Amino acid sequence: MKIKTAMIGVLLAISGNAIADVQGSDFALSTKWEVSGFKMPESVFSSANHPWLYVSNVNGSEPGFISRVSKNGIIDKLEWATGLSSPTGSDIYQNTLYVADAKQLRAIDLSTGAISASFPADDAISLNDVAIDQSTGDVYISDVPGGKIFILKDGKLSVWFESPDIPFPNGVLVQDGSLVVANYGLENGEGLARKQWKPDDFGTLYKIDLATKALSSIEPSKKKGVYDGVIEFNGALIASSNPTGQILAFDNDKSYLIDSTDKGVADINTDGQTLYAPYLFNNKLTAFEPVAWDRITTRQEYLEKGADNYYGDEGGKSIATHDGIIKGMFAGQQLTGTWDWEGEYFCRTSTLGKMDLGSDCIQIDVTQSKMRLVLDKGEGMSVVYDKKSP
C-alpha cells in the first residue's frame, strides 16, 4: 500500500511561491534551522514565556539527560540536567521543569539544572509526556505502555484516568478545561512492540474534561496517524505521527497533512511562532515556521510552477514534464505515465513497474520547496514531497 500510495502522487515537481502571512489551519512547514548532536531526543519543551528550549535525551541504555538549547538553534549545554534514567516529555510550572523519567516524575530547578524532587509512580510502566494546568499547578503525565494518565496534585502522584478507548496514551496537552490526549494506536491484539502499524491500528486524539473526566474523540483525527506529540499551533491542533514521519493539523471537522518529514518525529512543541520537532532516530532537533500552500488551479500555473521539476522522498523521485510525460523511479521500480489538466486538477494515468496505478485527478498545493498531492480531487489521501535535484 505504501508504494502504491507514494506512486499515485509521484508526478510533479513544483516550485511555488510561499506567502509570508499565513492564515487558517491548513499550512505547510518551512525549515528555519536544524541542529544535531543529541542522544535519542524524544521531546522538547518550548514556551513563549521562556527563553530556552529543553531537549530530553533518552540515550539508549545509557543514563539520559536534558539539553538546553537557544531558540536560534545553538546547544548551550548538551548535558544541562543529569542524574536521569530515560527522560521524555516535560513542562514548566513557575521555576521548575517537570520531566517524565521512566517510573519517576522529576522536578528540575531551572536556575541550576539540579533535580529538586522526585515522585515515584509505582503503578506505571513507563511515564512519557507531561502537561501542566497553569491555573492550578496540577501536573498530568501519560504512561504509554501502561495505558494510564497520572496526576501530581498537592505533592502526591496517583492514577487520574484510564480507559480501554485509549490503550496507549502518548502526548498530552491542557487546553480550554480539557486534557487533549494523543492515543498512539489501537491494541488490536498486539502491543507496542509490533513490526508494522497498519492503518486499522492508527490512533485518535481525545479530549478529557478536567472537571468531569468525560471522554470525547476528536473525529477528524481518527486513524490518521500513530500519534506522539500534540500541540496547539497556528490556530489548529497539531500532532506528530512517529513511525510515519507525518505532521498533521486538525481544525473543527477538517484534517490536513501539513508535512511529511523523517520517521521518528517525536514529541513536538511550540512557542507560538515556531514548531520544534525532535527526531528520535536522527539525533536532531528541527525548527519549522508556517508558510502558506499555493493552490495550483490552472494548467498555466502548473506549467510555470510545477512542470519539469523533480519531487520525491527517500523512496525515489519523479518528474512531470511540460509535454505531458511522467517518469521516475520509486522503490527500484520505473514509473511511467502521462498527465493532462481538467478543471482545477492535475489528472494522471501511470504505471509503476508492472503495477497499473490507474487514473486519478489530484489537487496540487506547493511551496518553494514542497509539493502536496491530495487525491480524488482534494477529497482523498494526501502525500507531501520535497523538491529534488535531477
Results as ranks from 00 to 15, higher is better:
Ser260Glu: 15
Tyr256Gly: 08
Tyr276Ser: 07
Thr336Ser: 12
Ser260Trp: 14
Gln334Gly: 04
Asn309Ala: 15
Glu304Thr: 15
Asp313Thr: 01
Asp271Ile: 06
Leu335Arg: 04
Arg295Pro: 09
Gly306Asp: 11
Asp340Ser: 02
Leu285Phe: 13
Asp340Pro: 01
Ser255Pro: 12
Tyr345Lys: 00
Leu280Asp: 05
Trp293Tyr: 04
Ala277Phe: 06
Asn269Val: 04
Phe281Tyr: 15
Glu289His: 07
Gln273Val: 10
Asp313Glu: 07
Met329Gln: 14
Ile319Asp: 02
Ile325Phe: 07
Gly306Ile: 14
Asp313Phe: 11
Pro290Cys: 06
Phe346Asn: 05
Ile326Met: 05
Gly312Phe: 09
Lys284Arg: 13
Glu344Cys: 08
Asp267Leu: 13
Ala331Ser: 10
Thr261Cys: 04
Pro290Ala: 11
Thr336Cys: 01
Trp341Val: 00
Leu280Asn: 06
Ile296Thr: 13
Gly306Asn: 11
Gly343Thr: 11
Ile268Lys: 03
Gly312Trp: 03
Met329Thr: 13
Gly272Thr: 04
Glu344Asn: 14
Glu342Thr: 14
Ala292Cys: 06
Lys263Asn: 02
Tyr279Met: 02
Gly337Lys: 02
Lys327Gly: 07
Tyr279His: 09
Tyr302Glu: 07
Leu303Thr: 13
Phe330Val: 02
Lys305Gly: 00
Ile296Pro: 03
Gln333Asp: 13
Asp308Trp: 02
Gly316Glu: 08
Gly332Asn: 13
Tyr345Thr: 09
Gly337Asp: 00
Gln300Trp: 08
Glu314Gln: 14
Tyr256Pro: 06
Thr336Met: 06
Asp267Gly: 12
Val291Lys: 11
Asp271Tyr: 03
Asp259Gln: 12
Asp262Val: 08
Gly324Val: 05
Ile319Thr: 14
Lys327His: 05
Ala320Thr: 12
Phe281Cys: 06
Ala307Gln: 08
Ile319Tyr: 09
Asp294Glu: 15
Ile319Arg: 03
Gly312Lys: 03
Asn283His: 11
Leu280Ile: 13
Ile296Gly: 08
Val265Gly: 01
Leu280Tyr: 14
Trp293Leu: 09
Thr321Phe: 04
Asp308Ala: 12
Gln333Met: 15
Arg295Asn: 09
Lys263Ala: 01
Thr336Asp: 07
Asp308Asn: 13
Asn269Arg: 02
Tyr310Thr: 00
Lys254Met: 05
Asp313Trp: 05
Tyr311Pro: 00
Asp259Val: 03
